[in-house]
């Protein structure tokens, strides 16, 4: 399985993602934002970080960079594109997934482990994951998911919510919402569910020496689903 991780000026989780993808069997290539062509890939990842210093709005500049036209074309032809954290912010700015990510409700940068409940398994990202709840890490200042009422209706009608913030037992309540996200949304799909944007970082949970291994479950499952 071949993957590509796009590096933008200011990306800082690109190499972590490279390590994670390789650990679970992907042949990964790092792709520079100013390149026009995407290498042949089964999965394209937009990594976390602070692309273009988060100027204007997080992800807004990166969404207009040269490589993104190829990524958009790839996604529109059914290719698997996953955006993590700043990558999610870039995805919403391209319009590939609906909504926006606002400043966290209590104006704090949040850096901690959270639990997320998988809302939909009829997709290549979460199909066959045994667990209902995963422990991932979040680190962001703008992760407060918001969309219009019309968009929300469409998202819910199409079952596009991927994961919700919850407690360790999978209870989705306000008190387990770290950043004020609408409906505790931590990640969403596009309509066809080949594009996934999520705030949590699975690549930070792939080794016992890190704070957990639920990311390993995610990546092992992902590569099996793509085979």
């Amino acid at each position: 399985m071949k993957s590509s991780v796009i590096t933008f000026p200011g990306s800082n989780c690109d190499r972590d993602m490279d390590v994670a993808l390789k650990k679970f069997g992907f042949k990964n290539k790092m792709v520079w934002h100013a390149d026009a062509e995407l290498p042949k890939s089964d999965l394209v990842v937009l990594p976390g970080g602070f692309s273009y210093g988060d100027y204007l709005r997080c992800g807004s500049m990166a969404s207009k960079s040269k490589i993104m036209q190829s990524v958009i074309n790839f996604a529109n032809s059914g290719g698997m594109v996953m955006g993590i954290c700043n990558g999610f912010q870039i995805l919403v700015e391209t319009g590939l997934v609906p909504g926006v990510l606002l400043r966290n409700k209590y104006l704090e940068f949040i850096c901690k482990n959270v639990f997320v409940k998988i809302n939909d398994k009829k997709n290549k990202y979460f199909k066959n994951v045994d667990n209902e709840v995963l422990e991932f890490h979040i680190a962001h200042n703008e992760g407060n998911y918001f969309c219009t009422n019309d968009q929300l209706k469409e998202i819910e009608d199409n079952n596009q919510i991927a994961i919700n913030y919850c407690d360790e037992n999978g209870k989705i309540e306000d008190q387990f919402n770290p950043n004020g996200s609408l409906k505790n949304i931590a990640g969403i799909f596009n309509k066809k569910k080949n594009v996934l944007g999520m705030m949590p970082h699975p690549e930070r949970m792939i080794d016992t020496s890190l704070s957990g291994e639920d990311g390993s479950l995610f990546f092992k499952n992902l590569i099996n689903n793509l085979k």
Binding site: L56, S60, K64, E93, G99, V100, L102, F146, T148, Q151
Partner: peptide
């Protein structure tokens, strides 16, 4: 196209 995000 860039300066505003019309969702918000």
């Amino acid at each position: 196209k860039l300066l505003a995000n019309l969702v918000i």
